[in-house]
Nucleic acid binder design. Sequence first.
DNA 1: GATGAATGAGTATTCATTCAT
DNA 2: TATGAATGAATACTCATTCAT
Lengths: 204, 204, 204, 204
Amino acid sequence: MPPVVSDKYKQEKKAAILKSAFECFAEKGFQVATIDDIVAHSKISKGAIYNYFNSKDDIYIELMNQHTNENITSLKRELEKLADTREKLDYFFHLYSHLDQHPQFSNSTRVHIEFWLYSTRKNELRDIMLARYELYKNLFKRILVEGIEKGEISTHVNPDELSFIFWGVIDGISLHFAMLLDQYPYQKVYKEIQELIYTKLGFN
Amino acid sequence: MPPVVSDKYKQEKKAAILKSAFECFAEKGFQVATIDDIVAHSKISKGAIYNYFNSKDDIYIELMNQHTNENITSLKRELEKLADTREKLDYFFHLYSHLDQHPQFSNSTRVHIEFWLYSTRKNELRDIMLARYELYKNLFKRILVEGIEKGEISTHVNPDELSFIFWGVIDGISLHFAMLLDQYPYQKVYKEIQELIYTKLGFN
Amino acid sequence: MPPVVSDKYKQEKKAAILKSAFECFAEKGFQVATIDDIVAHSKISKGAIYNYFNSKDDIYIELMNQHTNENITSLKRELEKLADTREKLDYFFHLYSHLDQHPQFSNSTRVHIEFWLYSTRKNELRDIMLARYELYKNLFKRILVEGIEKGEISTHVNPDELSFIFWGVIDGISLHFAMLLDQYPYQKVYKEIQELIYTKLGFN
Amino acid sequence: MPPVVSDKYKQEKKAAILKSAFECFAEKGFQVATIDDIVAHSKISKGAIYNYFNSKDDIYIELMNQHTNENITSLKRELEKLADTREKLDYFFHLYSHLDQHPQFSNSTRVHIEFWLYSTRKNELRDIMLARYELYKNLFKRILVEGIEKGEISTHVNPDELSFIFWGVIDGISLHFAMLLDQYPYQKVYKEIQELIYTKLGFN
DNA sequence: GATGAATGAGTATTCATTCAT
DNA sequence: TATGAATGAATACTCATTCAT
């Protein structure tokens, strides 16, 4: 109950809006959830929401940026701790193969892919999404490149293509899990995929 | 206009609506395209459209059913012609690895996944989509089962899991291609994927 | 009530919307009156209104076009009946100097000038308003040009400038009348103005 | 910020707000310009603005009062310096016929008339605007009355009516100039108008 | 006095669906 | 069967004003 309010206050308010927004998007989908849903859910007035964000699209973008930043930062930090390529890839597979345990994973996936598709028709959004794609792709690609340089993985591997495959597989599996839920053998599928890729890399 | 119209007339009309609807959905996305867009594109009146379909959702469902039926029928027909498992899988990979040539492939993918996600929140739709998923999964799974029975592929393969993987990979790659378009090395990715899977199956 | 409705029906509906819209604009001003006001006043649904017009701006434009067309047509018809320049100008002055009798004249003036000002900030609208200005200016200018050619008015007159003056005076007086109403000696002012201009033209 | 701020401080602050407000109104129009526009332009907080003014309407009123006061004071001062009626009228015409040179003239006119029209529907505002109208009318009328008394202008002149005409013409021409800008022969029109009126007054 | 976050009624516009003809 | 006008709830976003600090 401002004004002349601390940065902390503002950050918390923004965070509260984002949290509510995520929950609304998760429940109904990005396009179906309305600003009024967020108002009702967050108990923050419409005007206040628009004080912190320019548009509904903007809310999603910030939500995703925040998640991406945290995620990438955390991934990099963990990967740095690990010495060899095998360990790094183990880390990746371990991480993603247990996402099904996270209660919001399927909703999160749905919203993410829905927005991805939605962004396809709006150039400004599309550029943002592509830049983010690049970030993830390079993260993985770098591991492979270094693995090859260090002689830890087969030189037959094309880091670029394998990165595309890796993230494609991740999104495909996430999408199917988001649809099938309990009926999808999520962890078994990951085990198999890991084996396929490890064989290619020349592990074991 | 005919006094009592023939079945043929009705089928053609329905087909014309579906064709237009597909083109509208492809251009704008399922949720963004409107019934009025379909009216304008098809030059068929709104009332007539609602004579043949109960709702916008229904139009999509019929569109998908028709496509699925044609597609599955055609797949089965082609697969029957082929004797061994390797050939059958070659056929699959050849087919999907060239979809990027089809001008409407990326739009079609977008609409398909968009609707899939959308269906997630409506039980009635979700059941329909799941049944369709099952159809495709079994088609692939049966090939693997038969391949194992005939000793043409490694007994280490779990047909169920590998089917999940196969379709997951297909959708993941299609989704990424729909986003990245020219920047996505579609065919190279398929070649690699095929190799990964063939190794697993024990081919070569 | 529809569909497959006669042209007459549609014209009447459109006319009913325009009539209501005019009354709402007159009562509250163009910018303050809302589409909901028009809905309430006309008892025509919002959707129906947007079936006939693209936007609130569009409603005003059509209102003005209709009025302008009727007005210009009627002016031309009357002017054609009159032989000499003096009579034509008499007709003009008589017409405009009695507008204060029309119950909606002041409201009409207010809305018209408000929209004129409003149009200033939107290029598309501005062009439309300027074209309309030209129409009126030329109508008057032609009379003067012909009057000079026929030797009925002084050759010292510059038809272009005098037309600007004529319409400027009309709008200035209308605007002041719209403000002052009963306190404005509308007809006396017109008499005086007429005299000023007639002297210039060399009448009497 | 001062503990007890001086009157001078307050006046300067108020003046700064009015200056910004005028520029915002001029740029976007009174109804379209927002308080936030004024905040952004003046770099004075919203709360501070509402400390000095009760409402957006109030800001305009004060703006106009200030301008009117300055303007009338200046007019009176200059007119006092001049001996005869002809010179006084010359002064008027010279002043107004060169307003087109002032860069903000057309914007100023637009805002002024827009607010005038807007005030029409709010009695409180309307009274203020009418009082101001009276001020200007009397200023001009007094010159004519004195001119008649001093025998410097024709006794056929009705000072009241001619004042209405004078200000009506000024506003009409200003309005048309604000619309047409370069396309309007502003100074030529004034020359002509002056001639018309001078003839009536019996000059030359 | 100054600040600026909060408020929430208000705005133009859209669109799936209905149904009288 | 075909038509397309009508419906009205729903939508994202705005903005003058308030008031706790």
